[in-house]
Design a protein around this nucleic acid. Structure first.
Lengths: 143, 143
DNA sequence: TTGCATCCTGTACCCGGGTACGGGGTTACC
DNA sequence: GGTAACCCCGTACCCGGGTACAGGATGCAA
């Protein structure tokens, strides 16, 4: 007579901690499921898919608040708030910016490695050091 | 008679919150500075440079613990622990891996945008949806 | 009907990197 | 020598994304 999945089953199937289900419910990512007579949660089968969606979106760089918003957007689609596509475009811009930052970091690390820096502090004091210490004006007038 | 910089001056010059200096001291990133007769910290002028080094290294993807380690490594250079270069190589590998993850994410977002997905949940249910819902087996046998 | 697995609730804790607050002592300049 | 600005210390709080724990109540099968 089990009208739905128990939290342990859902958690297991989705590969998350059972506590996380309650947490997502509090955060508005999962709708409140039905309950058994004794008060145990009984989840509809689609919940497992929803959890995978959440994990995927999270992996795409969305925060839980953003994912909650995105899911809500799908559930009540009437409103003309900026849709998934628009938000994906914003997120893409963020991701691209993060990539270019990391490219700079990687290039800097490669240069540092190639030039054999072995001591950060010493390198910072050395004008030949390739690591950019953000405009290290280096005003060392030691009066 | 000021034998060193006061915390506010250092913080200002390095562009950090004065509280952060105490925090870094606790975390072992800054050595304990001298004190005035009344107990106020008096920092050597090089501290500002050290702070810039910290911020730079942090920007290169090192955690504060790693930075503390790196600085310490420079200060007591006798030991033959893996040096800056080796650690930079490890960090570079991490950064490169993070970049390629982000590239995948960006590509996925671009595909999603191009195909006009407007509802995450609907897309997840649609076999033509390009967003990879991690093997979404989608076993929806709704008995 | 008994027994154990699972579930319920609220609350507290974890990580990293700081920031804020309160109450009191010190410095520096006029 | 007054007084404003600064600094001291310990402690608590913030963010995001969960996880753990304690003490009871249910579910389900033998």
């Amino acid at each position: 007579m089990s009208e739905g999945l128990r939290s342990g089953e859902v958690a297991e199937a989705a590969g998350v901690n059972p506590q996380t289900l309650r947490y997502y419910e509090r955060r508005g990512l999962l709708e409140e499921p039905g309950r058994s007579l004794g008060g145990h949660r009984l989840y509809p089968p689609g919940t497992v898919a929803t959890l995978r969606i959440i994990k995927t979106a999270q992996g795409l760089g969305f925060t839980l608040d953003e994912v909650a918003d995105l899911l809500d957007l799908g559930r009540r689609r009437h409103a003309h708030a900026p849709g998934l596509k628009a938000r994906a475009e914003l997120k893409l811009a963020e991701v691209e910016s993060r990539i270019s930052d990391l490219e700079t970091i990687a290039a800097t690390l490669r240069t540092a490695i190639a030039s054999g820096c072995e001591d950060l502090a010493a390198c910072a004091a050395d004008p030949r050091c390739p690591i950019p210490f953000t405009g290290l004006t280096h005003s060392e007038d030691p009066t």
